[in-house]
Computed example of a mutant assay.
Amino acid sequence: MISYVWAEDEATNIGYHGKLPWHLPADLHHFRNLTINHPIIMGRKTFASLPGVLPGRLHVVLSHDDNFRKKYYTNKNVLVFNQISDLKTWIKDQEQEICVIGGNSLFELFKEDVKILHRTIIHEKFKGDVQMPRLNYSKFHLINEENYLPDNENKYAYSFLDYQRK
Rank of each mutant, 00 (worst) to 15 (best):
S3N: 06
Y4R: 04
W6A: 05
A7D: 00
A7F: 06
E8K: 14
D9C: 04
D9N: 05
E10P: 05
A11N: 01
A11I: 00
T12Y: 14
T12W: 15
N13K: 03
H17S: 05
H17M: 02
K19H: 12
L20Q: 06
H23W: 01
L24H: 07
A26G: 05
D27H: 01
F31D: 04
F31G: 09
R32A: 00
N33P: 04
T35F: 09
T35R: 11
N37V: 10
N37G: 09
P39V: 10
I40V: 15
I40T: 10
I40S: 14
I41L: 12
I41Y: 15
I41E: 07
I41D: 13
G43Q: 10
R44S: 14
T46W: 08
T46Q: 03
S49Q: 02
L50K: 10
L50R: 02
G52A: 01
L54C: 11
L54E: 09
G56D: 03
G56C: 05
L62S: 15
S63A: 15
H64S: 15
H64C: 15
D65Q: 00
D65N: 09
N67A: 07
N67T: 03
F68A: 13
K70R: 10
K70G: 10
K70E: 15
K76V: 07
V78L: 09
V78T: 03
V80K: 03
Q83I: 00
Q83R: 13
I84K: 13
I84D: 08
I84V: 15
I84H: 09
I84M: 14
S85D: 15
D86L: 06
L87W: 10
T89G: 08
T89P: 11
T89C: 07
T89Q: 14
K92T: 13
K92M: 11
K92C: 10
D93S: 05
E97H: 14
I98K: 00
I98W: 11
C99M: 15
V100C: 10
V100F: 04
V100D: 00
I101F: 15
G102T: 02
G102N: 02
G103C: 04
N104I: 02
N104C: 07
F107A: 08
L109V: 05
L109T: 01
F110P: 04
F110A: 01
K111S: 01
K111W: 08
K111C: 07
E112V: 03
E112P: 04
D113S: 02
D113M: 07
D113K: 01
V114M: 06
K115Q: 08
I116N: 13
L117H: 01
H118P: 00
H118T: 00
T120E: 10
T120S: 00
T120L: 03
I121P: 08
H123W: 08
E124W: 02
K125D: 02
G128K: 00
D129K: 01
D129A: 02
V130M: 04
Q131F: 14
Q131V: 12
M132D: 11
M132I: 06
P133E: 06
R134F: 09
L135V: 08
L135H: 13
Y137L: 09
S138L: 05
K139I: 13
H141G: 09
I143R: 15
E146Y: 14
N147A: 15
Y148E: 02
P150E: 04
N152W: 02
E153M: 01
K155E: 10
Y156V: 08
Y156C: 11
Y156D: 08
Y158E: 00
S159L: 12
S159E: 06
S159D: 11
F160Y: 14
L161T: 07
L161G: 11
